[in-house]
Design a protein around this nucleic acid. Structure first.
Length: 528
DNA sequence: ACGAGATGGACCC
DNA sequence: TGGGTCCCCTCTCG
C-alpha cells in the first residue's frame, strides 16, 4: 500500500514508485501540500466554490480534479519528505529519522536504536479528516439523539464466574473516569464521571446515590461543562475527594453524602485534575496530579489554592500519581513524556525524582491513559504494573504486553502477553491479597492468576478472559454461558474458539533486550 | 474490506 | 489567552 498522507482536498494522486535515481531533488523546502509533487502538472486550488460549505467544496474539488500521475521516490508518511520511509517494514515499524525518538523523546536516534528499548509493530495511518466539532458536543448530541449508544456503563464481575456479568447503565450518562471501592464496605463503590456527577453505588443492587452534580443547569456548551476525573476516599476524615476538569477539588462528606466547603483550585485554572490519592498512613496528606504537568502534595488541614506542600514538575501531562501502598512514603507517577518517575521518600528531598524509567505509554488519543500501579502485596514497595503502548513482534504477532517493573532498579521483571489479545491493555489492577491481575482493554477484561506466589515471570497457566461487547456476544452464541473457575483446563476461550497452548506467556528471558541492559537472573530475590 | 470518526493535547501565531 | 492545526504502533462501526 502506498503511503496515504494527503488531505482530502488534494486531488487523487496515482503514485508511481521509482526506485532509481534522481528526480526528486526538489524536496528540500518546506513541507507543504504540494511539495511532494514532482511531476509536470501544477496543482491549483479552486477559487470558485467560496460560497459552498466546507464539505461541498471538498467534494467538488475531488470531482473536478483528474488523477495525476506523478513519480516519486519513497515518501515518509510522518515528515512527508523523500529519501526515507516511516512505517512498517514487514512486522517492524521504522521510525522517521527526522523526528526525535518515539520512545525516549530524545533526538539523534530512533526507537530502533534507543538505548531504552527497541522494537515496534502495528501501523496505522491517522484519519485525514478534520473534525470541526467541539470536543464536548457529543455530550449534547446524546441528549438530543437517544439512539447514540449508551455510555457510562458500570460492569460488575465475580472473577470466579467470569461470564456472569452485571451491567448498570443508568448510573452515569458519560464515561466513568474513576472508581473506588469503599474500604469499609466493598459492596459499594464511589464513581466519578464525565457527566459531572459522583455517585455511591451498591454493587449488588445497582442502586446509586448521587453525591454531587457539577452541571445542575445541563448543557450550556463545552466551555462550562464540568467533568469529574480524580477521585479518592479518605476514611480517617470520612470524606470522598473529587476533582474536575477545571482544576478544582471538591469534598463530599461520607455520612451526609453532601458536598462540604467550597471547591478549591488545586491545579492550573481550566486544567484537568486527573488523579487524587490519599496517603495510606498519613490521612493529612493528599497527592494530586493534572494536565498542568504537576503532581502536588497537599496538607488536608490547610487546603487552599497555592498552599501545596510540594510541587513535582513533569515534562508533560501526569496520568497518575500514587503514594506507595504500605508505608506511603514513596511516590510513583506516570507521565505522558514516556517516563515513570519514582521519589523514594517523601521525607527526603523531593527536588528531583529518585529515578526516571523510560517506558512506552505516550498514547495517541482515544485511549485510556496508562497508569503505573503498585503491587499492594509487595513488602518492598518496588513492584509496579503498567500496560505498554508500542507493540513487539512475538512470533510474528504484534502484541502489547503488560509490564511488571522493578522501580528500584528500573528493570523489566516480567511482561504478560497473550497471542489472542492483540489490543492494548491500559487498565491494570493487582489484587490486594491474591496473586491476581485484572486487566482491561477495549475489547476484553482478563484475569491472570500466576500459580506460584510472587513469581509472575513464571508461565501463567490459569487464566480467565472475559470478552466484552461484540466479541462477547459472538462467543456466547457459540458456546453459551460459561463458568469455569475451578477448571483445570489450561486452554482458554476467546474470539469464539478455545485455544490450547502450553507456551509460556511470560518469558522474560526472550525479551531481556528490552528495558534492561543488564538483566537480573534472580528475579524473585527482592521478594520477602 | 475499507474508511470515517471519536476526541485530547501540543504547538504556533 | 485563544483559535487553528497537526498528530508515529487505536479501535469500532457503517
Amino acid at each position: 500500500m502506498p503511503p496515504q498522507t494527503r488531505r482530502t482536498s488534494f486531488p487523487k494522486v496515482v503514485i508511481d514508485r521509482d526506485t532509481d535515481s534522481e528526480e526528486s531533488s526538489s524536496d528540500e523546502d518546506e513541507i507543504d501540500e504540494e511539495d511532494d509533487v514532482v511531476g509536470e502538472e501544477e496543482v491549483t486550488e479552486p477559487k470558485a466554490d467560496e460560497e459552498e460549505g466546507e464539505e461541498e467544496q471538498e467534494k467538488s474539488v475531488t470531482k473536478k480534479k483528474t488523477p495525476i500521475t506523478i513519480s516519486l521516490k519513497k515518501v515518509c508518511k510522518v515528515c512527508k519528505r523523500t529519501g526515507h520511509e516511516a512505517g512498517f517494514k514487514g512486522a517492524t515499524y521504522i521510525d522517521c529519522p527526522m523526528k526525535p525518538c518515539f520512545l525516549c523523546k530524545m533526538p539523534g536516534h530512533t526507537t530502533m536504536t534507543c538505548p531504552h528499548r527497541v522494537a515496534t509493530e502495528y501501523g496505522v495511518v491517522p484519519a485525514p479528516r478534520r473534525n470541526t466539532h467541539s470536543s464536548l458536543d457529543y455530550v449534547f448530541q446524546r441528549q438530543l439523539r437517544p439512539h447514540i449508544p449508551k455510555k457510562g456503563q458500570l460492569g460488575v464481575w465475580d472473577f470466579c464466574k467470569v461470564y456472569e456479568k452485571t451491567v448498570y447503565s443508568e448510573i452515569h450518562g458519560c464515561i466513568l473516569n474513576n472508581m473506588k471501592l469503599n474500604p469499609r464496605n466493598d459492596g459499594t463503590v464511589y464513581t466519578g464521571s464525565s457527566d459531572g456527577t459522583a455517585c455511591c453505588v451498591d454493587l449488588e443492587t445497582g442502586i446509586s446515590l448521587s453525591l454531587m452534580n457539577l452541571n445542575p443547569n445541563g448543557w450550556q456548551g463545552p466551555s462550562t461543562w464540568r467533568m469529574i476525573y480524580g477521585l479518592d476516599i479518605n476514611l480517617d476524615k470520612g470524606v470522598v475527594l473529587v476533582a474536575d476538569n477545571f482544576g478544582y477539588l471538591y469534598t463530599v462528606d461520607m455520612r451526609s453524602n453532601n458536598v462540604t466547603g467550597k471547591p478549591i483550585l488545586i491545579h492550573k485554572k481550566g486544567s484537568k485534575v486527573v488523579g487524587l490519592h490519599c496517603n495510606p498512613l498519613q490521612p493529612d496528606l493528599l497527592l494530586s496530579c493534572g494536565n498542568d504537568h504537576f503532581a502536588r502534595i497537599w496538607d488536608m488541614r490547610q487546603l487552599e489554592t497555592g498552599s501545596s506542600l510540594v510541587d513535582l514538575p513533569h515534562k508533560r501531562v501526569v496520568n497518575s500519581a500514587y503514594f506507595s501502598p504500605l508505608t506511603g512514603s514513596k511516590i510513583l507517577t506516570t507521565s505522558q513524556d514516556n517516563r515513570i518517575r519514582v521519589w523514594d521518600s517523601i521525607f527526603g528531598s523531593l527536588d528531583s525524582p529518585s529515578r526516571e524509567i523510560v517506558h512506552s505509554h505516550d498514547f495517541n488519543r482515544h485511549l485510556t491513559a496508562f497508569r503505573a500501579e503498585w503491587d499492594p502485596k509487595d513488602q518492598s514497595e518496588s513492584l509496579v504494573v503498567i500496560g505498554r503502548y508500542i507493540s513487539e513482534n512475538y512470533n510474528g504477532a504484534a502484541l502489547h504486553p503488560i509490564d511488571f517493573i522493578d522501580i528500584s532498579t528500573g528493570q523489566l521483571v516480567a511482561e504478560i502477553m497473550d497471542p489472542n489479545i492483540t489490543t492494548i491493555s491500559p487498565v491494570n489492577k493487582l489484587h490486594p491479597r491474591d496473586d491476581i491481575l485484572a486487566s482491561g482493554s477495549s475489547r476484553s477484561l482478563f484475569i491472570w492468576r500466576p500459580k506460584e506466589k510472587h513469581e509472575i515471570e513464571k508461565p501463567i497457566d490459569e487464566r480467565k478472559i472475559v470478552l466484552c461487547g461484540k466479541a462477547e456476544k459472538k462467543a456466547k452464541r457459540k458456546f453459551g454461558d460459561e463458568s469455569d473457575c475451578d477448571s483445570d483446563d489450561d486452554g482458554f476461550t476467546t474470539k469464539g474458539k478455545t485455544v490450547k497452548s502450553k507456551q509460556p506467556y511470560l518469558d522474560s528471558t526472550s525479551t531481556s533486550k528490552s528495558k534492561s541492559k543488564s538483566k537480573s537472573k534472580s528475579k524473585s530475590s527482592k521478594k520477602p
